[in-house]
Amino acid sequence: MSSDRILNFAIRFGFLILLAGLVLYFSVFANGFASPRSAVFILQSVAITGILALGVTCTLVVDGFDLSIGSVATSALMLSAYAMVVLELSAGMAILMCLLMGAGVGLVNGLLIVKFKVPDLLATLGMMFLLIGLQRIPTQGNSIATGMALPDGSTAEGSFSPAFLWFGRERLDLVLENLLPVPVVVFLVIAVAIWVFLDFTRHGRLMYAIGSNQKAAALVGAPVSRNKIAAYMISGVMASIGGILLAARLGRGDIASGTNLLLDSVAAALIGFAVLGAARPNAFGTAIGALFVGILLQGLTMMNAPYYTQDFVKGAVLVIALVFTFYLSSRRGAGAG
């Protein structure tokens, strides 16, 4: 019937239409919104959140959840600063340490959940606290910057290497000079990679199977534990990449940064459920979800909405997206069954 068709159309394209409408509205009413610079600014504002959100999407796919991503990102921020400023290591070394730390945390999370049977929320919540505490211990709770006093009385002589800062600050030429920031490129590359991995590879398909019916997946011989651990490791690595980019942008190991990362990226992944009526975690939706929040905030900022309304707006978007996903899909399910 036609009402069914409208419902189906709304479920599939409602969110994208809302996004297009939003872009159109801001283009007309917010001066300077419809420009490449503004578009890039939006991308830049969501790049780090988006990368974390793509990681959390992988854990959502295996029916898990990773609460530790925010603290993994800030740990990577502090670790890279510590490696370069205090230990005076090279940029490559610092990045490698961060990635290994992310993978290691993911591995521990995965083992806690798979081997020790700790529920995912609790295991990653514990890990979150552990990391928030751990990243403060080496510097006695202080931020890290060149010239800071160390616990042993000396001063930190090292500094962020230009090669490292390149990741956070360099803008590549694309049509316009100095248009594309490196974090945006990293975000887009990772988004495509995760999308291809989840939607088009055998391993991605197995992860979805595990998330949908773990027992059935195990009974066809799928290595369930290994896949779940892999999902948490991907999540950890993504979070550490986010942390590296944040450090490279800030140029110092700021202890107070990144507090919003967890909630923002989880919101982006959940908003992604509503995109194209997927009603399940998916990389494309997550990227769109991150963009949606970015566009909304940028547009509102350009229309002089005060900064303190931002969280309210994010929350409202999330609630609407969840209604899209769960209420409309359940109506569709009831109509068909």
Binding site: R202, R205, Y208, N213, K215, A216, A217, L219, A222
Partner: peptide
């Protein structure tokens, strides 16, 4: 409980053990 992957279509359900 033990076999059907509810989120998957017929093709993915049927080929699940032999995706390789």
């Amino acid at each position: 409980a033990n076999a059907v992957i509810p989120d998957f279509d017929i093709a993915d359900n049927m080929t699940l053990p032999f995706l390789g």
